[in-house]
Design a protein around this nucleic acid. Structure first.
Lengths: 339, 339
DNA sequence: TTGAAAGCGCTAACAG
DNA sequence: CTGTTAGCGCTTTCAA
């Protein structure tokens, strides 16, 4: 136990064959007698033989591997993507290497470099805000599927969402319920997605003949701490917003925590639109109205591009999907103010 | 772009050096002039050189890779583990290969086999209920860290929880609040962890001089559909349970969805203890009392064993951690029945 | 149907 | 300080 794995030569020696013959037998080559194949298979199973992917890769020139680089595997959205990709990879007998950047550009560069060592057939990457130029040029040497975030200098297929669309849906929904003082907590403008979202908010307000009150807007890192504080700040505003649009998943959880702590009744005192795909949105008392990404479709699109890359087709497609609004119980017409 | 990656020889040719010299320069070998090192480094960066991990592995005899085999990356608990492991791996300049078994033994075998192709320094695996014997014998050929689930035939370090402990904590908590009719929804006895948990429930009841009412127990797969139906069944019972202990995360979400749909007031009509580590437990109105795993500690223990395996220390340790009860607002003394 | 030989990219041992 | 040589395990010619 724990001794070096057997090699083709070990099997060959066992059976008085040459190792190429063993190799061919195991890969089902036509010109090997059925009897030899059976003997080889038996010996391989008995000895616990498993091919050495490194050696195979050296011959083939590329690894049988897909890289996945995400900012946060703890985020349910990314977890769902990882699941789909992992499933599809194992169907194609490929390996999935998972790297988590934590939204740090330095780390991202190191991870991309490491990923490239495995000579992946493709890399699916959700870039950080401001990737290093070297990260981009390294990624340009492989089939790279850009996920959510895109970079102008990066070639290859892209899977994105109409980023402003979600914001527009949320704001229009709240406006239609009579809300005017709408708080918005979202990611910074450093992200392309943050910019687009802010634009969506502004545009939706403008279409209704309204301007965005800067005091009602809180932009920052897409994490819990920021979201919690931002919501408390918005609650302290006078007049207090009658509705909140929370535009990322971590911010949404943190915000609900803040609202619970402050004892705010939802939707009686405050309407709330959250973001993301958590099963908790449906479980929440009354349900939480949410702007959700079509996770399944996004993951499928990415996976499809990965498969194409494996086939050698250097696809350059772009898949753009749309957010959806799922109206649940956390949004209601503004109280005592029928419009 | 997208042409084959440069090799050591390419760099060597570029600089009129031999490729071993280039190799030594890049790995910071002592006996290489500072000037040569600089020239090599420059050329390597310029050409976008990245070592070929397959070739390196062939020399070293093992891959610089850690395998992680989980039943479900979508589960926040496992996601947290994956995150920790991914972080630690990248610090050690190792790769993390993620495989998701979906709790299917056939798939698990295929994935283990595939994982072994990369000659990992260690594999962290949360086994399925009934792994194939071949899976176990394959895993015995590498450093294997058993996570949560253990198998008697598998050597190597183990990281587990006192499985009955969580159940005991939950039941004792509910008993102390005066509840007697306690519903229990948990994983089947096929899992070692399911058995231990059932034992914990029984033992805690027995200590209080009570017997478990079989009608109040629902065991099944640890997924949403089952949890949802099980809770509805328990609610239909007469007399209806006054408290519920939900012993897995997916079951917990589904149960809360069912309770929300039925309009049950918590904790007024029903006390509830959920399981897992979701940030939503704190965000939930009033908070959800939960039995949580010490995720961080579990992940750290696993990661430590992985590091030891990398150092060649064939550790055989066992880390057993305990569940914790976090009392929040979803459990209360039984209504109109002060004891 | 099988064997012999070569080479993928890298590192380590040994010369110079 | 640097070059030469060899070999890791595998697949793929080519030859028998």
């Amino acid at each position: 136990m724990r001794r070096p794995q057997p090699t083709l030569k070990d099997i060959a020696a066992e059976l008085n064959l040459s190792h190429p013959t063993v190799s061919r037998a195991l890969s089902g080559h036509a010109s090997i007698s059925a009897e030899t194949k059976a003997r080889v298979r038996e010996a391989a199973d008995r000895l616990g033989y498993v091919v050495n992917s490194g050696a195979r890769m050296l011959k083939r020139g590329h690894g049988n591997v897909v890289g996945l680089l995400l900012p946060d595997i703890t985020n349910e959205f990314y977890a769902a993507v990882a699941k789909k990709l992992s499933d599809d990879c194992s169907e194609r007998h490929q390996q999935l290497i998972l790297s988590v950047s934590g939204d740090d550009a330095d780390r991202e560069l190191a991870l991309v470099r490491a990923l490239l060592e495995a000579r992946p057939t493709a890399i699916v990457v959700a870039l950080t805000r401001k990737p290093h130029p070297e990260t981009v040029s390294l990624l340009n040497t492989v089939h790279c599927v850009q996920f959510m975030q895109t970079h102008p200098g990066l070639a290859g297929p892209r899977v994105t969402v109409r980023a402003s669309g979600g914001a527009r849906l949320a704001i229009e929904h709240l406006l239609s319920l009579g809300h005017r003082q709408i708080g918005f907590v979202g990611p910074t403008l450093d992200y392309a997605i943050g910019q687009a979202r802010m634009e969506g908010v502004t545009a939706a307000m403008k279409d209704a003949g309204l301007a965005v009150d800067p005091a009602c807007v809180r932009l920052g890192p897409s994490d819990g701490e920021f979201g919690f504080d931002a919501v408390l700040e918005l609650l302290a505003l006078k007049p207090r917003p009658t509705a909140l649009y929370l535009s990322s998943a971590p911010i949404s959880v943190a915000a609900m925590r803040a609202l619970t702590r402050e004892g705010i009744a939802i939707p009686a005192q405050l309407s709330v639109v959250v973001a993301g795909v958590s099963p908790w949105y449906e479980a929440w008392p009354g349900g939480l109205t949410s702007i959700t990404l079509p996770v399944r479709d996004l993951a499928e699109a990415a996976s499809r591009y990965v498969a194409e890359a494996g086939d050698g087709e250097a696809s350059e497609g772009e898949t753009v999907l749309s957010f959806e609004l799922v109206a649940r119980g956390s949004t209601a017409a503004i109280a005592g103010n029928d419009k």
